[in-house]
C-alpha cells in the first residue's frame, strides 16, 4: 500500500513537472479529429452523424499514444527492478501506474473531448452521454493498456506491437462508448451501454492488475 501511494505521487509529480506529454496527447486528439474533418468534408450533417464515432475513436487512439512509456522508463533505468526487489506488490505497482496514466491522459482527454465534439457538430443533447461514457470507458482503456505495456516491455518494435495487441482488446469499449453517445444523439438513450461499460470496468479492475503483475514479473526476471 505504501508503494502504491509512493509510485502514484512520483508519477503525478513527474507528469506535472513535464507537461509536454499531456499536451501531446491532447494535441494528437485535436489534430487527428481535425484531419478527420478534412477527410469527410465540412458538411455539418455528415459530421454530426459521425461525431460520436470520431470523438470516441480519436480519444482511444490518443490514450494509446502515451501507453508505451507507462513502464518503459522505469524499466530502462532499473527503477522497476528495484521496486520489485524491495517487495512491492506487483499488482499494486500496476494499479498505481494505471491510475497515474488515467489521471494524466484520461482526464486530459475528458477535458478536451467537449471541444473536439463541438467542432464536429455533436448535438447538444449528447454531451452528457459523451462525458459519462468517457468517464466509464477511459479507465478500462488505461487498465487494458497497462497489461499491454507490461507485455511489450523490453521488446523490439514496442509501439507498433502495442497497438496491434491492444486494438482487439479495446474494441468492446469503443463499441459501447460510441453507442452510448449515439443513443443520446438519436434520443433513444438506454442504460445498456453504460451498464456494459461499467461491467467492463469492473472486469478490467479485477483481472488487469493481476495479468499486468504476471507480465511485470516476467519482464524483470
Amino acid at each position: 500500500m505504501r508503494s502504491f501511494a509512493a509510485i502514484l505521487r512520483r508519477d503525478l509529480m513527474l507528469a506535472v513537472r513535464n507537461q509536454g506529454e499531456m499536451l501531446m496527447v491532447v494535441g494528437f486528439f485535436a489534430i487527428a479529429a481535425t484531419l478527420f474533418a478534412f477527410g469527410v468534408g465540412p458538411e455539418a450533417n455528415v459530421q454530426s452523424r459521425m461525431s460520436s464515432g470520431v470523438v470516441w475513436t480519436m480519444a482511444l487512439l490518443a490514450a494509446l499514444l502515451s501507453l508505451e512509456r507507462m513502464f518503459a522508463l522505469d524499466f530502462e533505468d532499473g527503477t522497476l527492478d528495484q521496486l520489485m526487489l524491495s517487495g512491492a506488490e506487483p499488482a499494486a505497482v500496476v494499479l498505481a501506474k494505471t491510475l497515474a496514466h488515467w489521471l494524466t491522459t484520461g482526464v486530459a482527454l475528458l477535458i478536451a473531448a467537449p471541444a473536439v465534439a463541438l467542432s464536429f457538430q455533436l448535438p447538444s443533447q449528447a454531451y452528457g452521454a459523451l462525458m459519462l461514457s468517457l468517464l466509464l470507458g477511459t479507465p478500462t482503456l488505461s487498465l487494458l493498456g497497462a497489461v499491454g505495456a507490461a507485455l511489450v516491455l523490453g521488446s523490439r518494435r514496442g509501439g507498433v506491437l502495442l497497438s496491434l495487441l491492444l486494438l482487439p482488446l479495446y474494441s468492446p469499449v469503443l463499441i459501447f462508448g460510441a453507442a452510448a453517445v449515439e443513443g443520446a444523439i438519436l434520443g433513444i438513450a438506454t442504460t445498456t451501454p453504460y451498464a456494459v461499460l461499467g461491467g467492463l470496468l469492473i472486469l478490467a479492475l479485477t483481472l488487469c492488475p493481476w495479468a499486468g503483475a504476471v507480465a511485470l514479473r516476467h519482464a524483470v526476471e
Binding site: 521488446s155 523490439r156 506491437l161 496491434l164 482487439p168
Partner: peptide, 14 residues
C-alpha cells in the same frame, strides 16, 4: 488480429 499479435509478440524479444 489476436493471432497476428500473438505471433508478433512471441518473436519480438531477444
Amino acid at each position: 488480429f489476436l493471432y497476428l499479435g500473438y505471433i508478433a509478440l512471441g518473436d519480438a524479444f531477444e
